[in-house]
Amino acid sequence: MKIAPPSVWRIKDSLYNLIAAKCEDCGNITFPYQQICSKCGSTNVKSIKLSGEGTLIDYTVSYQAREGFEKVLPMYVGIIRLDEGFTIVAPLTDVNESNIKEGIRVKATLRKLRSDSSNGLIVYGVKFRPAEGQ
C-alpha cells in the first residue's frame, strides 16, 4: 500500500474543497490553508472556500510524469488567477491544443488524481477545466 487512507483523508479540504487561508490583517491568501500568514506572520487568519473560478494566466505542457501519473501525459498545467485574487498552479483537464489559450475562464472540477493499483485506493482532487462557453 503506497497511499495511506489517513494521509489523504486529513487533507480533504485542500484536495476537494479548495479551502484557503485569508489573513485578516494583510489580506494575503495562502493555499493550502495554514494557521499563520506567510506574508506578515499574523495568526489572525480565517479559512475561506475559494470559488474555483478564475482566469488562465499561462500554461505549460509537460511530457515527463511521475510514476503513477503516466496516463495523464501530456500533462497540461496552468497558472490560474482565481477570482479572489489568488494565483494557483494546478493541473488542467479536458483541454487540448485546440481549446486552450491564455486568458480563458477556467473552473475547478473534481477528478481522479491517482490510485494505488487497479483495485486500490483512489485519490481524487481538484483540477481545472475550461468554463462553459469557452
Partner: peptide
C-alpha cells in the same frame, strides 16, 4: 508542498 502540489501529480519541471 505535500497537500496539493505533490498530491496532484506535479513535478518541479512545470
Amino acid at each position: 508542498d505535500e497537500e496539493y502540489s505533490y498530491q496532484s501529480g506535479l513535478v518541479p519541471h512545470v
